[in-house]
């Protein structure tokens, strides 16, 4: 579904991604792990068309080269992102935030129904339709950001650090949602996360990025057995 080859991205001449290659197959949940500044967010931004990769980089989605496409044309292909820090529109209502997710859909009638379906996926948001997005708690905002992205009816959903700054109960709720509901919807997931245990629990495979390069990759089972992974990324925690 998604095939990235030799992806290079730099900011003002300073490289953030150096020859990253990565693949996500239809129906999989794939994690990208790595320390702060490893380039995880940059990877997602490159896929969404928010940063321009260097020449020679290739990102293929459903067999189609998408490097160089404007961001506005990438969403309609079926790629949605739940960005780092949620990035809710603070002064749009909860309902409007979700509606914005359908901005590029042409099946308006179906899109309208999908907006309402989001409240069944996250009943926590019910009764808050008219409230401004900015007045929600962090956890609710994370749920809203997921709804907003899902409303675009994506084939590939990219989620950037959903656990950031949230209470453990809420984190559990979000990850259970990723593991069960999103899979049920048949949506492929590319998940960026710093919490190794959590991301392994919901993923099939994982890539570990370090300093802009893929340091390791494999199935979750393989990686959990790897001594280096255990020492560096679990820091004594158990799955």
């Amino acid at each position: 579904m998604l095939r990235i080859k030799d992806l290079n991205v730099s900011y003002n001449g300073i490289p953030a991604l150096k020859g990253v290659s990565l693949e996500v197959k239809e129906g999989e949940t794939v994690s990208v792990l790595g320390p702060n500044g490893a380039g995880k967010t940059t990877l997602l931004r490159a896929i969404s068309g928010l940063v321009q990769p260097s020449p020679g980089s290739s990102i293929e989605f459903m067999g189609r080269e998408i490097v160089g496409m404007p961001a506005a044309n990438i969403v309609p292909l079926g790629i949605a992102q739940v960005p780092e820090g949620r990035q809710i529109f603070p002064e749009l209502t909860v309902l409007e935030n979700i509606e914005i997710g359908t901005a590029r859909r042409t099946d308006r009638a179906e899109a309208k129904k999908d907006v309402l379906r989001m409240f069944d996926l996250f009943p926590e948001l019910k009764g808050r339709e008219k409230q401004n997005g900015g007045t929600l708690s962090g956890g609710e905002q994370q749920m809203l950001a997921m709804c907003r992205a899902l409303a675009s009816k994506p084939r590939l959903l990219m989620i950037d650090e959903p656990s950031m700054g949230l209470a453990p109960v809420v984190v559990q709720r979000i990850f259970r949602f990723i593991k069960n509901e999103i899979r049920k919807l048949g949506i492929t997931v590319l998940l960026v996360e710093q919490n190794t245990a959590l991301s392994f629990a919901v993923s099939d495979r994982a890539y570990i990025l370090a300093q802009g390069q893929v340091a390791m990759s494999g199935t979750v089972a393989e990686l959990s057995r790897d001594q280096r992974v255990k020492e560096t990324y679990f820091r004594g925690r158990t799955v």
Binding site: S48, L50, P70, A71, A72, N73, I74, V75, P76, A80, Q81, P83, Q87, I88, F89, P90, E91, L92, E96, E99, I100, G101, A103, R104, R148, S152
Partner: peptide, 19 residues
Amino acid sequence: KSLRAVAQNQGAARLMGID
């Protein structure tokens, strides 16, 4: 609504596919 979204968070608006 898209105009308001762009005014509030241009990056997120881009991510939603807004031109």
